[in-house]
């Protein structure tokens, strides 16, 4: 290192020091404390008894835990595939400029920027078994269903409502990320592929898709990471859909409160999340 680089490095450390301190206090400390808690039987009055890995054993023998994993897997699969495909489709459609593209863009972004709680109420109203428009549409108007049903009330169908809600709310961010890459692909490449004899489908697979590889991988992994932890959307819309964060919440704060067990759940989830993040940084971003 030259003296100049050393000085730059020292200055850099000074700049990031406050951030490191705050992150350490607000993230690293609770994280470690959570790992610590997972080895204790925690009482509400604050007294703790060391139990070793008993919480983990209890958790892994709990069938509800496995059902939460299954629910989370379906939720992840549905939302990640759905948002990515919908985002890609919208980006491809809206790639070329046309009259009113700005308005369409704004309309697409709306669900993403709207507050969760307000749109959740809207969705609950849509799916209401008595006065909701969905039941009206499928039962009264189209006659596809024989009777009105409470789609959010039934945990099995509620999962798919929650998936649909997430796709609707988060496809815009996928759309935005994909579109920004899409418009930067040079026209030359498409022209060369056309000259080489490839029609629109060949050009999509040989020019567009390879160019989008990085951004698609980013969208998929970011969606996985975000949605593994997604709490508020699911809990507010359909609290009966027990994905892992909600399962953990019920363990920690409702019924027979077991914060040690909840902590153990979180630790396992953190492990899975770390693998996703490692994969994203190493394999996709290639740091």
């Amino acid at each position: 290192m030259t003296p100049l680089e050393r000085a730059e490095a020292r200055f850099g450390w000074k700049l990031v020091a406050p951030t490191i301190a705050i992150l350490g206090l607000l993230i690293l400390y609770p994280l470690m404390y959570n790992v610590y808690l997972s080895f204790f039987d925690v009482q509400l009055n604050g007294s703790k008894t060391f139990v070793g890995i008993e919480n983990y054993i209890k958790l892994l023998s709990n069938s509800d835990y496995y059902s939460a994993i299954a629910t989370t897997s379906l939720y992840l699969l549905g939302t990640v595939v759905g948002t990515t495909l919908l985002g890609l489709a919208m980006a491809l459609l809206l790639r070329d400029p046309f009259m009113g593209r700005g308005l369409v863009n704004a309309a697409i972004m709306l669900p993403y920027v709207a507050p969760v709680i307000s749109v959740v109420f809207g969705w609950q109203f849509l799916f209401d078994p008595i006065s909701g428009v969905v039941n009206y549409l499928f039962v009264d108007l189209l006659g596809l269903w024989s009777e009105r049903s409470n789609l959010i009330g039934d945990p099995d169908s509620a999962l798919w409502v929650v998936v649909l809600f997430d796709i609707w709310k988060h496809a815009p961010i996928a759309y935005l990320l994909i579109l920004s890459k899409l418009v930067s692909i040079s026209r030359d490449q498409y022209e060369a592929a056309a000259i080489d004899g490839y029609g629109p489908i060949g050009r999509f697979f040989h020019v567009t898709l390879p160019e989008l590889y990085f951004v698609l991988a980013t969208v998929v992994l970011l969606r996985l990471i975000w949605n593994l932890n997604r709490f508020e959307d699911v809990y507010l819309l359909a609290p009966n859909v027990e994905t892992l964060p909600i399962f953990t919440y019920y363990q920690a704060f409702t019924g027979v409160i077991d914060q040690g067990l909840a902590a153990a759940t979180s630790v396992i989830q953190l492990g899975v999340l770390s693998i996703f993040i490692w994969f994203y940084i190493k394999k996709i971003m290639k740091w």
Partner: peptide, 28 residues
């Protein structure tokens, strides 16, 4: 263009960045 049976050299070459030289050449 894909049905005109022509070959073209572009000013900026317009090579496919994800393909090797071999794949670029034999793509057509």
């Amino acid at each position: 263009p894909q049905h005109r049976n022509i070959a073209m050299v572009f000013q900026n070459y317009a090579l496919y960045p994800h393909k090797s030289v071999r794949e670029n050449i034999i793509f057509a």
